[in-house]
Design a protein around this nucleic acid. Structure first.
Length: 624
DNA sequence: GTTGGGAGAATTTTT
DNA sequence: TTCTCCCAAC
């Protein structure tokens, strides 16, 4: 028996050991939200609920793994089999099983951002629009994504931002149609499709829906304030049978509005579940009172929110500081001094974090840190799995096991010297719109077609394709990746990229990473859903992390805590970002974001505000 | 058709 | 600083 009363405070206890029925836990920052969830899981398992009838939905895979690990420790290893992960991850799992009901193959491809981009380019080109005036592919992608996540037609989204776009909205709608069509031809889904189709699967196939509804006795949702309409509907639907839906969140911390997150989901939860219990966690165990004061102050001005106040449990210490500096250069130098001083005070580098609004805010700082010889880690903007050379490897793996994957085929062949888009298109056509690497005849046909300039290179690859199937290397991804690297990629990287050795390291790491999946197809279906945050986490778990300063955006620091936090570029136009200031209502989100930044700090907080431009008030993030 | 140089632009936040 | 686009040469 776990002594819950001794380990939790009364509110946490109430939440963790609540009986059946819907439950809303409002957990302000640093109040032991994760702890409560972990103990909730342990409690349910102790009550004899089979672990595989628990569904735990989290915001990142990292959070899921962390919770499972901790719950395992608490409950003594009885938690195996819990369904957990992000919404995308869980939908992916549903769809891998029932894809045929929606007319997809079970090995459908998940399109990542690059794939989406190139398809969009094709669509725009196909409509022969003058692409000078036409919105860029990233804008289009954002538009379509917003529409999907808010469950609105594309046209409605365009209408709202039409004055900026300055084109015929019907052209955009046409591009969207083309995009959908191409995805369909490829039998592929993008990120949003996972949610859309996941929901569709449950809605349109009653027996499937029923089986999941009765399977999941309890559903637990973390970071509920950042769910969008699709996700909320998914939860409601899955929980409709038992109604044991527990959502945990903090409306103050809703920072993904731009991705369709709607904090009304959490605000209106009591309306949708009138019989729900509400538990508020307000005891803050993380930060010293001075930091909480800042936190409380900075969101006090926001309308529409659950009233909460953070109550400190810790003793006073040093006051948070704000430094005003002339420009970014001076800021970087000041930061180096601060870091040094904190080191003298006994803090490790890994206990400190530098947070900022956008990745490019950190460039000057990075240079200054290297100059000063202070090691740092940065969770960079481009995901580890999105880097060009990693995608090169992935496209090879995709060709190995996904015969209909035109995009991977094109990427892999594009790496051959002298082979360009036109030639590739020709090959694909002649192969009948499909390249099955298992099929010896097709492989021979391709070898015969390929340009002389690339024949040698391709022969090596062709042999690897053969080996993949003959030696059943599908279950030994590390081996096939290593061979691909040795026999082709190494030379290719040298030819094409500047820092080839650095990139080579990434590939070695990929070879390790891939072994954590049971086989290559499983890895491929997951890899698109892994983020660099997840990757950081596994790295920290495996190697003993060297002592390094952490640099991160506020978004990526969500859910983390550090003894010392520096927030840089706290200046009008940077943080709050000038991009969003124009749009009404979004300043509230900037304030929430700042709140998240502030509440990451346990002991010391320091805000750095360069004046750079002639902005008058360098502390715009504090509502007066 | 393809490559590669060179000039230019441009930078929110992410599953 | 990194990507992206455009043009000329192979």
């Amino acid at each position: 028996m776990i002594p819950f009363e001794k380990l939790l405070n009364p509110e946490q206890l109430a939440a963790a050991t609540a009986g059946d029925g819907p439950l809303l836990v409002l957990a302000a920052a640093g109040t032991g939200k994760t702890r409560t969830l972990v103990y909730r899981v342990a409690y349910l398992v102790e009550q004899g609920i089979p672990p595989d009838s628990l569904l735990l939905l989290t915001f990142t895979n990292r959070a899921a793994r962390e919770m499972i690990t901790r719950a395992e420790q608490v409950a003594g290893g009885l938690t195996g089999g819990i369904w957990s992960g992000t919404f995308h991850h869980v939908c992916n799992r549903f769809l891998r099983r029932y894809a045929d009901r929606l007319g997809f193959r079970h090995d459908f491809t998940i399109l990542d951002r690059d794939d989406t981009r190139s398809i969009l380019d094709e669509c725009v080109k196909a409509l022969k629009l003058n692409r000078k005036e036409f919105p860029k592919r990233d804008v289009l992608a954002a538009l379509f994504s917003t529409a999907a996540n808010r469950c609105v037609p594309v046209f409605d989204v365009i209408e709202k931002s039409i004055d900026e776009l300055n084109v015929d909205p019907m052209d955009i709608v046409r591009v969207h149609e083309g995009y959908e069509q191409r995805k369909h031809q490829l039998g592929a889904m993008d990120f949003d499709d996972l949610l859309v189709n996941g929901l569709r699967l449950l809605r349109e196939h009653e027996e499937v829906c029923r089986s999941y509804q009765t399977r999941f006795r309890h559903i637990l949702v973390d970071e509920y304030q950042d769910t969008n309409l699709l996700q909320a509907q998914l939860v409601d639907l899955l929980g409709a049978h038992y109604r044991n839906v527990m959502v945990v969140g903090d409306d103050f911390q809703c920072i993904y509005g731009w991705r369709g997150a709607d904090f009304r989901n959490i605000m209106e939860f009591p309306k949708r579940y009138p019989d729900c219990r509400i538990v508020k966690l307000e005891q803050n165990y993380r930060s010293v009172p001075e930091i909480l004061e800042v936190a409380n102050a900075c969101i006090a001005g926001n309308p529409e929110q659950f009233q909460k106040t953070l109550r400190a449990t810790r003793l006073s210490r040093v006051k948070p500081r704000a430094l005003f500096l002339r420009d970014g250069d001076e800021q970087a130098k000041a930061l180096v001094r601060l870091v040094r001083r904190h080191q003298e005070d006994g803090f490790n580098l890994s206990q400190m974090a530098v947070l900022y609004r956008a990745h490019f805010h950190s460039i000057e700082l990075q240079m200054e840190l290297s100059r000063a010889g202070i090691p740092y880690v940065i969770t960079s903007g481009v995901g580890v799995f999105e880097q060009a050379h990693v995608k090169d490897v992935l496209s090879f793996l995709r060709v190995c096991c996904q015969p209909g994957d035109r995009l991977a085929f094109a990427r892999l062949l594009g790496m051959m010297y002298g082979v360009g888009p036109k030639a590739i298109e020709g090959y694909w056509e002649k192969l009948g719109g499909r390249f099955d690497s298992r099929n010896g005849q097709q492989r021979a046909a391709l070898c015969a077609m390929i340009k002389p300039s690339a024949r040698a290179e391709w022969t090596a690859i062709d042999r690897l394709l053969g080996a993949y199937h003959q030696e059943n290397l599908s279950v030994n991804g590390g081996e096939i990746v290593s061979r691909f690297f040795d026999q082709f990629l190494h030379a290719y990287l040298e030819r094409v990229y500047e820092h080839a050795d650095k990139r080579a390291d990434d590939i070695q790491e990929l070879a390790v990473q891939i072994m954590q999946s049971p086989d290559v197809p499983a890895f491929l279906s997951e890899v698109a859903l892994l983020t660099n945050v997840d990757h950081e986490y596994t790295q920290r778990q495996t190697q003993d992390a060297p002592d390094r300063l952490q640099l991160s955006t506020v978004h990526q620091a969500k859910g983390l805590e550090f003894p010392v936090v520096f927030v840089i570029w706290v200046a009008e136009g940077m943080f709050p970002s000038s991009r969003t200031l124009g749009e009404a209502g979004d300043d509230a989100e900037e304030r929430r974001l700042f709140y998240v930044a502030v509440t990451r700090a346990k002991d010391e907080l320091c805000l750095l505000a360069p004046e750079m431009r002639r902005s008058r008030d360098p502390r715009p993030s504090f509502p007066s």
